[in-house]
């Protein structure tokens, strides 16, 4: 499998890009040239220079530093959202798919209800209900997305639950925990990895959207969506301030989307039509 991964150019390129971005975010204090929060009002809207490689924003803060520090909330929150979504969705999907009967009925009807709401409206409703904070944005995103995962995972589990090795386990009375964790979870793990990597892109956009609207990460924390929000007032006079976080979002989200496709090809060679 490693061999196949290394031969797949898109997979290698996107995974290394994402890893690189993550590393830059982790080591932000050593890489960023300036303090992202330090204002230098005299030098506001400064063009490229040695001190400020990408110029400064409306408060004279270093754009490059803000972008580098911005990786932390943007990527970190997106990954956190996906982890929450997968945990909740996988648990519900496993229970519904494996035990069937009334458990499945209850879970799937809740899922149907969740899926019948437009997702953006649900996010706004949850954030409005719980108050504006980063924590609530994550809760809102997990809340609308888990149903989707529960449904996907249930289908995967149902495919495997009647395979002979699961039937054997049930015949000899292997504990349910073992069947679920050792047989079923690994069987659906690759599908799950693909779905999750595709959806990290979605989570980034969603969190940035909420921050742009002022409902997510609050100023002065550097977050790419929030940076766009600050930049929109000076869009014509200082376009750099908007272009920098804008391009960063586009590149990272595209990388995640391409990575999802590439991982699917790597993990499941049957899907590739050649």
């Amino acid at each position: 499998m490693l061999q196949r991964f290394l031969h797949h150019k898109t997979a290698v390129a996107t995974v290394s890009l994402v890893l690189l971005v993550a590393l830059i975010g982790i080591f932000a204090p050593w890489i960023a040239p300036n303090d992202p929060l330090a204002t230098d009002i005299i030098n506001k809207f400064a063009p490229y220079s040695a001190e400020y490689p990408l110029g400064t924003d409306n408060l004279g803060r270093c754009l490059l530093s803000r972008m580098i520090y911005g990786i932390r909330p943007t990527l970190g929150l997106a990954v956190l959202t996906m982890l929450g979504t997968i945990c909740l969705g996988a648990l519900m999907g496993l229970l519904a798919g494996y035990f069937r009967g009334w458990i499945e009925e209850v879970i799937m009807r809740v899922v149907d209800v969740m899926l019948s709401f437009p997702s953006q409206v649900m996010v706004f409703a949850v954030v409005a209900l719980l108050g504006v904070s980063v924590q609530n944005v994550i809760i809102a995103n997990v809340f609308i997305k888990w149903a989707w995962y529960a449904r996907m995972i249930r289908t995967g589990v149902m495919q495997h639950r009647n395979s002979n090795y699961v039937l054997f386990s049930r015949c000899i009375g292997t504990p349910e925990r073992f069947v679920l964790l050792r047989h079923l979870v690994p069987s659906i793990a690759s599908d799950l990895a693909v779905l999750a990597s595709l959806d990290v892109g979605w989570a980034i956009i969603n969190i940035s959207t909420l921050s742009f609207l002022g409902l997510g990460v609050q100023a002065p924390t550097p977050e790419w969506g929030a940076m766009l929000n600050e930049a929109k007032n000076v869009m014509t006079s200082n376009p750099t301030q908007m272009i920098v976080p804008g391009i960063a979002i586009v590149v990272l989200v595209s990388a995640f989307n391409l990575m999802g496709d590439a991982l699917r090809d790597v993990l499941d060679p049957k899907e590739v039509s050649e």
């Binding site: 015949c171 009375g173 047989h183 069987s187």
Partner: peptide
């Protein structure tokens, strides 16, 4: 019954977890 019975299936390709 679970304690005293065991089973062997026809389709050996799916009888063992491939992982």
């Amino acid at each position: 019954l679970q304690n005293r019975l065991s089973v062997v299936f026809q389709d050996y390709t799916t009888s063992a977890n491939p992982r």
